[in-house]
Computed example of a mutant assay.
Amino acid sequence: MGHLPPSKFALNDSVQFRVADSILTGVIELTDFAHSSNKAYHSYSIFVEERDCSYTHVPEQDVLKKF
């Protein structure tokens, strides 16, 4: 497994992200990395206040933008 580039997003960033067919807005509350099939990537736990819910293990490629 190679080196990961730095995370694009940080704790407490407000971000827009994709989950299934929905686009949600939330705040990053945890950063992490995940790996499967020899691929490594950053992932995040994102809290969405409107749903009073955290989405965990959101892959970095599903985080669309930072506000």
Rank of each mutant, 00 (worst) to 15 (best):
Gly2Asn: 06
Gly2Glu: 10
Gly2Arg: 10
His3Glu: 13
His3Lys: 12
Leu4Met: 13
Pro6Arg: 04
Ser7Leu: 01
Ser7Cys: 02
Ser7His: 01
Lys8Ile: 03
Lys8Cys: 04
Lys8Thr: 04
Phe9Met: 01
Phe9His: 04
Asn12Pro: 00
Asn12Arg: 05
Asn12Asp: 10
Asp13Phe: 01
Ser14Glu: 14
Gln16Trp: 05
Arg18Trp: 04
Val19Ile: 11
Val19Ser: 07
Ala20Met: 02
Ser22Trp: 09
Gly26Val: 07
Val27Cys: 09
Val27Ala: 05
Val27Asp: 12
Val27Gly: 05
Val27Thr: 15
Val27Arg: 14
Val27Leu: 07
Glu29Ile: 15
Leu30Trp: 11
Leu30Pro: 03
Thr31Cys: 06
Asp32Gly: 14
Ala34Phe: 08
Ala34Leu: 10
His35Gly: 10
His35Leu: 02
Ser36Ala: 09
Ser36His: 09
Ser37Pro: 00
Ser37Cys: 05
Ser37Asn: 11
Asn38His: 13
Asn38Thr: 03
Asn38Trp: 11
Ala40Phe: 11
Tyr41Phe: 14
His42Leu: 05
Ser43Tyr: 01
Ser43Pro: 02
Ser43His: 04
Ser43Lys: 06
Tyr44Met: 03
Tyr44Lys: 03
Ser45Pro: 07
Ser45Lys: 11
Ile46Asp: 03
Phe47Asp: 05
Glu49Tyr: 06
Arg51Gln: 11
Asp52Cys: 00
Cys53Phe: 00
Cys53Ala: 05
Cys53Ser: 04
Tyr55Cys: 08
His57Cys: 07
His57Phe: 09
Pro59Leu: 02
Glu60Trp: 03
Gln61Ile: 03
Gln61Thr: 00
Gln61Leu: 03
Val63Ile: 08
Leu64Val: 12
Lys65Trp: 05
Lys66Leu: 13
Lys66Thr: 13
Phe67Tyr: 15
Phe67Pro: 06
Phe67Ser: 12
